[in-house]
């Protein structure tokens, strides 16, 4: 039981670290694509291409680079989480009504002020829903980390497969499903509030 709790915490920490990093990188990439139009489609294509690479293949290649351990799985999760965040940041920024941007410019706001005071706040509900997709995906991808020597709930699942022990598999699987459903639900509630607020 104590072990299981430890795996759950480890799993969560891996997912949270990866999410924080990918939110940072994803939003910055989204902003770059928004400010510098010609870069938008290469950035989006890159994040889409990364997501097309099979999980095990990407993780195995990252393992060659970073070795065994948590760094490898975190960097893999960051790469996989990019697409929803980058795409939603970009779409969110692009779809801010032109009249509002015009008004902000008319008030004498600089480009950065417009971004932080007007455009990002308006795009935030959409960015948040991108983050939600990333978190839910990362929870289940993180399981595969066990194959490249990282911790988390993948460990009891993999041990269970090796020993054909159904209980052990489920002891890893059920917490993941509960967390996925819980995160999905909670973040959907926040998402709804945010978008109502934005209107």
């Amino acid at each position: 039981m104590i072990n299981l709790l430890q795996y759950i915490i480890e799993h969560l920490i891996i997912v949270i670290i990866a999410t924080v990093i990918s939110v940072g990188i994803g939003i910055i990439l989204g902003i770059i694509g928004y400010w510098i139009r010609p870069l938008a489609s290469p950035i989006l294509l890159f994040s889409e291409a990364v997501q097309t690479i099979p999980t095990l293949a990407l993780l195995a290649i990252l393992m060659i680079l970073f070795g065994l351990g948590n760094t490898t799985i975190i960097s893999g999760l960051v790469l996989y989480a990019l697409l929803p965040i980058v795409r939603n940041t970009h779409t969110g920024l692009v779809s801010v009504p032109p009249a509002i941007k015009e008004a902000a410019r008319g008030m004498g706001m600089s480009k950065l002020q417009r971004l932080f005071w007007v455009e990002l706040p308006l795009a935030f509900p959409l960015i948040f829903s991108g983050i939600k997709i990333s978190v839910v995906n990362s929870l289940s991808i993180a399981v595969i980390g066990v194959l490249i020597g990282s911790g988390g709930l993948g460990y009891p699942i993999y041990r269970g497969i090796q020993t054909q022990n159904l209980n052990l598999i489920m002891s890893g699987a059920i917490p993941i499903m509960i967390m996925a459903i819980l995160f999905d639900y909670l973040m959907s509630v926040i998402e709804k509030r945010l978008s109502r607020h934005a209107k």
């Binding site: 399981v143 595969i144 993948g154 699942i157 054909q164 459903i181």
Partner: peptide, 17 residues
């Protein structure tokens, strides 16, 4: 959709058993 949240490794494990 809930079935889909079961990680792939788990499904493979169950199928194996």
């Amino acid at each position: 959709g809930i079935v889909q949240t079961i990680p792939g490794l788990v499904m493979l494990g169950l199928a194996l058993i």
